[in-house]
Amino acid sequence: MNRKSIFSWLVMILSSLVLLFIIAPLAGMFFHTGGTQFLETVRDKEVQQSVWLTLWVSFAATFIFSFGAIPFAWSLARKKLPAKNLIQGIIDLPIVLPHTAAGIALLGFISRDGILGKAASLAGLNLVNHPAGIALAMAFVSLPFLINAARDGFEAVPERLEKAALNLGASHMKVFFTISLPLAWRSITTGFVMMFARGMSEFGAVVIIAYHPMTAPVLIYERFSSYGLNYARPASVFFILIALLFLIGLRLLSLKRKKKNINIDAQTD
């Protein structure tokens, strides 16, 4: 056996161990969940509601914040911003913060004493213990995923193409929508899915903003702390399956959409 193959073996074994580390607990959880138990949980209204709440709130948060995050990502990729590194650092901050600390910070901002909380209460809305507050908590911790992926996507679009479009008479706005955005679409979708997934799985920040209504991660925690592991397991399995289904569906949709875009272009041409 030569040195190269020893190295290859070593890499393979280490990689397999890491992979196993990810798969084993999940697989264990699936195997330890009985069919009847699982079906009962699926039929449980409380579980259904929490999963549904988690999905739509995370999707709404991602969708709404993408209107600001995508143009922001474009400006990070294209513009000479003052203190760009500082701005980039601020964007990444939620990734490194303990999420409970992020929740506490956010709570101060959206409770009735905070600026946003005051503004919302004027409109008759209490953000704490409300889906809107949950959405804000999810967005706070997951925004970097969308911004960074979209920024990478825009950076990968050759600037020449944007210049050519300007030269051909397009306004900056048109260049953004007809050239930059379609060409960065794949990265943006990846970022969108990442932000959605990250928001969905958020526990720390969400639990501080809203214990009720319960999102799936909070519900799983509640079942675990009140009733124990066996009771929390089926809910976890159910949530993971739903989340996976949703993620795969979104991925497929975005790929299809990209293909469809090209076809539509060809047809109307």
């Binding site: 210049k163 272009d265 060809a266 041409d269």
Partner: peptide, 24 residues
């Protein structure tokens, strides 16, 4: 201006490219 690397839009057909200035 015609760039050295042509800067042809890769996500459009030939028609889409030539029509671009008229569409905008």
């Amino acid at each position: 201006i015609v760039f050295q690397d042509y800067a042809v839009f890769p996500h459009m057909t030939v028609f889409g490219n030539i029509a671009y200035p008229l569409r905008v």
